[in-house]
Structures are given as C-alpha cells and as structure tokens.
Amino acid sequence: MSVETEVSDQGRFAGLRASLSEEFAVQTARLKELTEISADTGDPGEAHNRAALTAATRHSLEQITGALRRIAEGSYGRCAGCEDAIPAERLEVLPHARFCVPCQQKQNG
C-alpha cells in the first residue's frame, strides 16, 4: 500500500467514523426513548410495534458498533467470509457491511 493510499484511507475512515458515531448517538437516543416509554395503552399492536422498533434499533447499534470496531482494528472493508475487499459502492450503501455480495448471499442461504 502506498503512502498516498494510506493517507487517503485515513481521511475516508475519519469521515466514516464521524458519520457512524453520529448515527450511533441518534440510535442510542432512539433506544433510550423507546425503552423509557412506559405508558401501556392496552393496545397490543402498539406494544408489538414498540418491541419491533426496539429490536431494530438494537440491531442497528450492533451493526454500527461492529463497523467502528473494524475501522479501529484495520479490518474495515474486508469481507468476513472470503477476506476480499468489499466494493466501495456496497460500503457507501451499507457502511456496516461485513460481507461482499456473494458471501452475504451464502450467509442468507
């Protein structure tokens, strides 16, 4: 890896880290709000929706945390399956992606 590539990657990762950290803060606030809602309206649909939103928010936080950890470890952008580079286009859409598309399809069965 050339010095220019390394410096470019560091700049890109700094922006990505900042973006992921902001999203982490937003999702953390959302989770706090969801878990502090204690008014039981007696509507099972509302309780189900709140539980689903809470689970989705926790999952999002896990994905963000994993991406931040991979950035810190230097493994961000490498497929956890085949260890090839994950295309930048995929990472732009899913910055928390752990797998390239073929390996993700294998994971999904």
Rank of each mutant, 00 (worst) to 15 (best):
M1Y: 02
M1H: 05
M1I: 09
S2I: 06
S2H: 06
V3D: 12
E4I: 09
E4K: 09
T5K: 12
E6T: 11
V7R: 10
V7W: 00
D9E: 14
G11T: 10
G11N: 13
R12L: 11
R12W: 03
F13S: 06
A14V: 08
G15I: 08
A18I: 03
S19T: 12
S19Y: 09
S21F: 04
E23T: 11
E23P: 03
F24A: 06
F24S: 09
F24K: 12
A25Q: 14
Q27V: 12
Q27A: 15
T28S: 15
A29I: 02
R30W: 05
L31A: 06
L31Y: 09
L31P: 10
K32V: 13
E33C: 06
L34M: 03
L34N: 05
T35N: 11
E36K: 08
I37S: 05
A39I: 13
D43W: 04
D43M: 08
P44T: 11
G45K: 13
G45P: 03
G45C: 07
G45Q: 12
E46N: 04
E46G: 02
A47Q: 15
H48C: 03
N49S: 09
R50S: 01
R50N: 01
L53H: 04
L53R: 05
L53P: 00
T54K: 11
A55S: 12
A55Y: 05
A56S: 13
A56N: 12
T57C: 14
T57E: 05
T57D: 07
R58W: 05
H59P: 00
S60E: 15
S60Q: 14
L61A: 07
E62C: 10
E62S: 15
I64S: 14
I64M: 12
G66V: 12
A67I: 14
L68R: 13
L68H: 07
R69P: 00
R70M: 03
I71F: 03
I71G: 07
I71Y: 02
A72T: 14
A72K: 12
A72W: 00
E73T: 06
G74N: 07
G74C: 08
S75K: 11
Y76Q: 09
Y76R: 07
G77N: 02
R78T: 05
C79E: 02
A80N: 04
C82I: 08
E83F: 01
E83M: 01
E83S: 06
D84G: 03
D84F: 03
A85L: 04
I86L: 08
I86E: 06
R90D: 01
R90A: 02
L91W: 07
L91I: 09
L91V: 11
V93P: 01
V93G: 02
V93W: 01
L94I: 15
L94S: 03
P95L: 13
H96T: 15
A97G: 11
C100M: 10
P102G: 05
C103D: 13
Q104C: 07
Q105T: 13
Q105F: 00
K106R: 13
Q107T: 03
Q107L: 10
Q107K: 09
N108E: 15
N108T: 10
N108W: 00
N108G: 04
N108F: 01
G109Q: 07
